[in-house]
Design a protein around this nucleic acid. Sequence first.
DNA 1: GTCTATAATGAGATAGAC
DNA 2: GTCTATCTCATTATAGAC
Lengths: 189, 189
Amino acid sequence: MTETQSRLLDLGEALMRKRGFGGFSYADLAREIGIRKASIHHHFPTKSDLGMAVLDRYADQLADKLRKISSASRTGGQALDGTIKLYRDAIDHAGRMCLCSTLAADTEVIDRDMRERLAQANRDTAAWIQETLLTGRRDRSIAVGGDPALEAKAILAQLQGAQLLARAGGDPQIFDQAITTLVARLSRH
Amino acid sequence: MTETQSRLLDLGEALMRKRGFGGFSYADLAREIGIRKASIHHHFPTKSDLGMAVLDRYADQLADKLRKISSASRTGGQALDGTIKLYRDAIDHAGRMCLCSTLAADTEVIDRDMRERLAQANRDTAAWIQETLLTGRRDRSIAVGGDPALEAKAILAQLQGAQLLARAGGDPQIFDQAITTLVARLSRH
DNA sequence: GTCTATAATGAGATAGAC
DNA sequence: GTCTATCTCATTATAGAC
């Protein structure tokens, strides 16, 4: 992984999270990075190759962040708070969102590989939330009952939906408003 | 409003809900409708004009459907069930979503007028949910406590997020899974 | 209101020199 | 690994005839 390649992934990720997969071009990357379009094709022959590389790295980093939240938290409730903060922080900067939320809207535009990777990332995140809910129930930091697999999907939906609402309204605080009741419902710390 | 214009709005709406605002072109419309691209520009000079017309009509129809749900429901709980069904039905057909969910991801691509109309539509829907929550509390069909304005935003986020998850996973049932706990939490019919 | 014709621009991508 | 040059195609949009 060269310096140029990681700069391309960084910028590509930023643009995808801000404008979606169809919302940026190699010309945008070239302008910002300071090389020519043809040079980008050397690193990522097709735009799909770049998209897949960005998504792959993003999914790995997300899983990594979730693992770190787990090990840094004393209770399941704390871990879920950390997760909420993760999604909140993602929208504060430059109108970005979680890549998984943005790409979901682009589902019909991206190719099959990206689609499957995206679905897998969502399944992984939901599974992690589910585990964390169970942990929180055991340590009595979370009060939520009901099927944990369904609760986990509900929480993920609310997190991604809150990002969507906040972006559409042009105000990050909408995220907080749409998530307050979730925090209240979960917490028992 | 001529026949051709309403066909253009219908098809435009379908495509926007399926692929986003940037995900279709006048060529797509022309092919399907059976006229030439230039003829479409006669009805909607720019693509933004078309997008705005679609969004405007969509927002009006959505508000209308919500009003009808209100008057057809005996309790607030019934009205919210009807709303959930509305969002569920929207994704069953041909991979579409609520236009408001799709456009939120496109926020950076659409122009200022559309952005403001979108934000207004979301505010209206949240306000309607809020009213319905209050109604349901009064008639004892809804058990949810907490600030109704925040609860309403949370519910809207969960509905839109569940559509997002279902589309990303390629399976409408994911919507049901992500919404089950909401139904359980609200209902007391 | 629809057509043909044609801009004008930008997209993704390739060939081949350095 | 980056460049210039070029290709091909799609996109939005306009002019003007019918």
